[in-house]
Amino acid sequence: MEKLEYSLAENLLRGVAEEYPDDYQALKELGWCDVQLGRYEEGRKYMESAYIKVKGTDTASFEERSVILWRIAESYLIQLNKEDDPEERVAEYSKLSFDSLIKALKQWQYNAPAYTSLGMLYLNYFENKDRALKCFYKAFELDAGEVHSSKELVKDFSERGDWEMVDLVCLRVIDSERAKRLLSIDDDDSSWPYRMLACSALEKQNDVKAIEYFQNALRTDSSDLESWIGLGESYLARGRLEASLKVFTHALELDPENWQSAYLLAVVESSMGEFQDSIQLLKKLLHGN
Rank of each mutant, 00 (worst) to 15 (best):
E88V: 15
N111H: 07
R14D: 13
Y122D: 00
D156S: 15
R160N: 15
D221V: 09
K134N: 14
K151H: 09
L13K: 08
F275A: 12
Y213T: 02
L27E: 05
R89S: 14
D187K: 15
V67P: 02
D224H: 01
F126E: 09
Y76C: 04
E29T: 11
L241C: 00
K55P: 04
G56D: 01
K155S: 11
M120P: 06
D34N: 13
Q25R: 14
A91K: 15
A50R: 04
F136T: 03
A251W: 09
A198Q: 03
L105M: 03
D167I: 02
P21V: 05
L69D: 02
D85L: 11
A237G: 02
L202P: 04
D99C: 11
E159K: 15
G230Q: 00
Y51D: 09
R89G: 08
K209S: 09
L101R: 04
D224I: 04
E87V: 06
K45I: 00
Q79F: 12
Y6F: 13
M120N: 01
D207Y: 12
N111C: 00
S150Y: 00
E5F: 07
D207V: 07
G56P: 08
A114N: 06
K180G: 07
G232T: 02
D186A: 06
R160H: 15
G56S: 02
L171E: 13
L225N: 07
F248L: 03
I211S: 02
L218Q: 01
Y263D: 11
V268H: 02
S61T: 02
W108Y: 03
Y137M: 10
P86Y: 00
E233V: 13
L101T: 08
D224N: 03
G15A: 03
E29K: 14
F157P: 03
L171V: 00
A26H: 10
V208D: 13
E152N: 11
W228I: 04
D99K: 13
G230H: 05
S261E: 06
I52M: 08
S97W: 01
S94Y: 08
D277F: 08
E274N: 08
G288Y: 08
M272C: 01
S244A: 05
C199V: 10
D224C: 06
Y125V: 01
P193L: 05
H287E: 15
S190R: 15
S234Q: 06
I279P: 09
F214I: 05
E274V: 03
L101H: 01
E127I: 13
F62T: 04
L30D: 01
K134T: 12
N216F: 01
G31T: 03
S271E: 15
L37R: 02
K103D: 08
F248C: 04
H287S: 14
E63N: 11
L142N: 08
Q215N: 09
K95T: 15
V169S: 00
L12Y: 12
Q79W: 14
W192T: 05
L168M: 13
L183N: 07
V154A: 05
I279R: 12
R71S: 07
G145L: 07
E141A: 04
S191Q: 05
E177F: 13
S117V: 05
E242H: 11
G43F: 00
Q280H: 15
G273E: 02
N216Y: 07
S7N: 12
L80I: 04
I229N: 00
A9F: 06
K106T: 02
D23L: 06
K134D: 14
K82Q: 09
K209D: 10
G56E: 02
I211T: 08
L197N: 00
D188W: 13
P256C: 07
K151N: 10
Q260M: 12
